[in-house]
Design a protein around this nucleic acid. Structure first.
Length: 412
DNA sequence: TGTCCACTGGAAGGGAGGGCTT
DNA sequence: AAGCCCTCCCTTCCAGTGGACA
């Protein structure tokens, strides 16, 4: 009883954080260090909206965590506020194509944002377009639609088509206008886009350079001031987070995650300070959580493929090829008494797992012995094994995986 | 020098599961 | 309820392909 009360009491008494939310990825800060010129640029492009004119479409390119999203959302919110004060009709719509990665979901989201009633499935894409048109056509409003991580949409079947329709939508609107901001971190996207979409979306192009460690430090300091209680960060915590993140091409989001999770670990352990150890622990925890989340939501056959890889690579210490994995996978499905997917599918699954960062694979030609994907596990085998064993559908199979796994890993 | 392996990766299509409108 | 259309996961088919080997 008292134990519980102690836990609650210490939760009430903030020791580390003042406002943890300030470190969450979707928080848009009021101050964005080292992005002044980008902010000014975006703002000046969008400014005509205040006079009721359609701003140019913008295409923004930059690696992850270079502040693209933050800058766009920041400018957009300022734009809406200014418009409201000035009596101009401007509305910002933000959609992230990574999490809503079918053409239908994207425009459904846009539709919902502008106030159309869109069911989550059941309608044709054309029908949703129609509904959007109906709602906004006569509103005398400038809509600024941000398509974040647009590459996820463009890569999908039919994605090009939706983009094309979006760039053309203005000709069907009466008194309102839509301007588009495409955001991406993939350089090859530009090549693969429909040329008509490309020229329309790229009326103005902007490139966001990565932050260096120095700049990351400034960003972290600004946020830390809002997020933490004064004095809880040990001296070199911020430089450390900045340095670790700078190593990964200056990803600010990663740096902020590191700082936040380090703080959480400190708080959980009842420490009154955030130390270097907390940061290193945070780095591991972030990686572990990411993997666990990804693996847990994988479909059954992907999990079986992962289990096969675990076995073939001998507990994650060696390499495997597609053929070897497929053979083991077939054996596992046989034991489970379920249907086996084709080699083509497994090849596809392996490519997906590679993209998710669960495995790393290279397509290698071994001459006479054909061309295959040579892959290895890109995560802690223990964590993978534990996560896989949570799935009851894998049944007894997991024991066998475990035996193999235990045998090999204890040999090392 | 050409062959040929063991796949890769693109494309199209299907069918299960499910929600929409009428 | 019928008739559409959606997504997701999968299949079938097939045209490449890098380089060790004969």
């Amino acid at each position: 009883m008292d134990l519980v009360r102690d836990v609650f009491a210490s939760a009430l008494k903030p020791r580390i954080f003042r406002d943890r939310e300030k470190l969450l990825p979707d928080y848009v800060p009021g101050f964005l260090p080292h992005r002044e010129s980008e902010i000014r640029r975006v703002a000046s492009i969008l400014a005509p909206a205040l006079r009721g004119e359609k701003p140019s479409n913008i295409f923004i390119y930059g690696l992850t965590g270079t502040g693209k999203t933050a800058v766009v959302r920041y400018v957009l919110s300022k734009l809406e506020v200014t418009a409201r004060e000035a009596g101009a009709r401007v509305k910002g719509v933000y959609v992230n194509a990574r999490y809503r990665d079918t053409p239908y979901r994207i425009i459904a989201d846009i539709g919902e944002a502008v106030g159309a009633r869109i069911p989550f499935t059941g309608l044709s894409v054309g029908e949703v377009f129609g509904r959007i048109l109906k709602v906004i056509s006569d509103t005398k409003t400038i809509y600024v639609v941000v398509l974040d991580e647009i590459d996820f949409l463009a890569r999908k079947r039919g994605g090009d088509d939706v983009l094309y329709k979006l760039t053309r939508i203005n000709s069907e609107l009466r008194t309102s206008r839509i301007s588009l901001i495409g955001v991406t971190n993939s350089a090859d996207l530009v090549e693969s886009l429909d040329p008509r979409v490309k020229s329309s979306l790229g009326e103005v192009e902007l490139v966001f350079p990565p932050y260096n460690a120095e700049q990351l430090k400034d960003i972290l300091e600004a946020r830390a001031r809002e997020a933490f209680q004064p004095g809880v960060l040990e001296e070199d915590i911020i430089p450390l987070c900045a340095a670790l993140a700078a190593r990964e091409h200056g990803d600010a989001r990663r740096a902020l995650d590191l700082l936040r999770v380090a703080g959480e670990i400190a708080e959980r352990s009842g420490s009154s300070k955030v130390t270097r150890d907390h940061v290193y622990m945070a780095r591991e925890e972030i990686e572990r959580d990411r993997v666990v989340d990804v693996v847990r939501t994988l479909p059954l056959h992907s999990k079986l493929v992962l289990a096969s890889i675990l076995m073939v690579t001998g507990g994650g210490s060696g390499y495997a090829t597609t053929g070897e994995v497929y053979e083991r996978y077939r054996y596992l499905t046989l034991k489970l008494g379920i249907e086996t997917v084709t080699l083509r599918r497994v090849s596809g699954i392996l490519a997906e797992l590679d993209m998710l960062g669960v495995i790393t694979g290279r397509v290698v030609s071994r001459g006479r012995y054909g061309k295959t994907r040579v892959l290895e596990l890109a995560l802690d085998p223990q964590v993978l094994y534990k996560t896989l064993s949570e799935d009851i559908a894998l049944g007894d199979i997991i024991d066998e995986v475990g035996r193999e796994f235990g045998k090999r890993s204890s040999m090392r």
